[in-house]
Design a protein around this nucleic acid. Structure first.
Lengths: 186, 186
DNA sequence: TTTAAAATAGTGAGTGATTACTCACTAAGG
DNA sequence: CCTTAGTGAGTAATCACTCACTATTTTAAA
């Protein structure tokens, strides 16, 4: 019966987003999940272990969505468009998971093993392929990924904080256009 | 003798970056600053007050650097170039201040009064002017600012974590070029 | 200028509240 | 019967902050 474990994870995600990891107490997690405090430690080694496992699971789920989005496409331009759409779609459909990935970026990402495929790597691969095929201008692929991911994440932040009021679809298509302007070979 | 207050601020900045605000204790601040714990409370209402005042002061100093960078220029393209250069320059010359602004973005920015001019607003103003003068393509100015600021901050993050290995100057000039490709009217 | 009073700066032991985590125990499923 | 799941009171440590006190600086009246 993995019900307790699931509830702990759900409640912890809410609280970690709301009050931060350090600002959330194990007592409150237990209370909201309707279980005893000790039960948390039957499933997780520590509060930090819970926070990290949660980060890994949402990061992997995000990365998998990005991977799925590109495997129906063959040329780099289509792949990039699909990646950007999937990025926005994940942020919209799983706002808590997305928030937690962004919040945990500073504290948790450094603990992730180097070999684990991260969302960023998918962008790097697509951009590299695009450069090789002459569709994208020649540049450092990591720099290209930074430019594109930076635009996407900051736009989502502005959308979520109400700074951008125009429609979601319109905004996504403008980000895609801007991305091609940044990357496309002349 | 404002020496104690200065030392508290310096040491707190280091610790807040290293361990987060919640993860830093007043005891440790006092110890590293070489003063008694009670002294902190002669200068700041609480630990959170210290964290917030620190955020405000570095955000203002950053914003002022951006403002200074543009007032020798008159056309929007030159202003934007100057803004981007000043952004990178601040991140390089005051890495702790810059780090703290980025780290406190989530938790502290929401406490800043709406009327206070923020770094983002300067980008919005320059982009708006560029659009009005026909130098930049017509678009939502907040969206434009999000695209440019997103590229800059993510590139700095990649630089700081060693993901981009190529030279600093080369990288800045590529970010400037990319920004013009995003904003320029054809 | 002298000096007394007031305000400010600094101290550090103390406090009550809170913390993550443990442990001896019970329950139950395979 | 043994492993796993769950309990919740208990614990030692730690926390931000206070307070009674001393030291120093500022103020301003004589």
């Amino acid at each position: 019966m993995p019900n307790s474990k699931t509830r702990i994870s759900k409640v912890a995600l809410d609280l970690f987003i709301e009050k931060g990891i350090k600002g959330t107490t194990t007592r409150e997690i237990a209370k909201r999940a309707g279980i005893a405090e000790g039960t948390i430690y039957k499933h997780f080694k520590s509060k930090n272990d819970l926070a990290f496992k949660l980060f890994l699971s949402h990061m992997d789920s995000f990365r998998n969505r990005l991977l799925e989005s590109i495997d129906s496409h063959s040329n780099p331009r289509d792949k990039l468009r699909a990646l950007i759409e999937a990025f926005f779609s994940f942020a919209k459909k799983e706002p808590k998971g997305y928030s937690y990935i962004m919040i945990g970026h500073h504290t948790e990402l450094s603990k992730v093993p180097r070999e684990r495929l991260k969302p960023k790597d998918i962008f790097v691969d697509v951009i590299r392929e695009g450069i090789r095929k002459g569709e994208f201008r020649s540049m450092n692929e990591e720099l290209g990924a930074a430019l594109i991911i930076g635009m996407i994440t900051r736009v989502i932040l502005f959308l979520n904080t109400g700074l951008i009021i125009q429609g979601y679809k319109q905004t996504i298509s403008e980000v895609i256009d801007a991305s091609f302007r940044v990357l496309d070979a002349r």
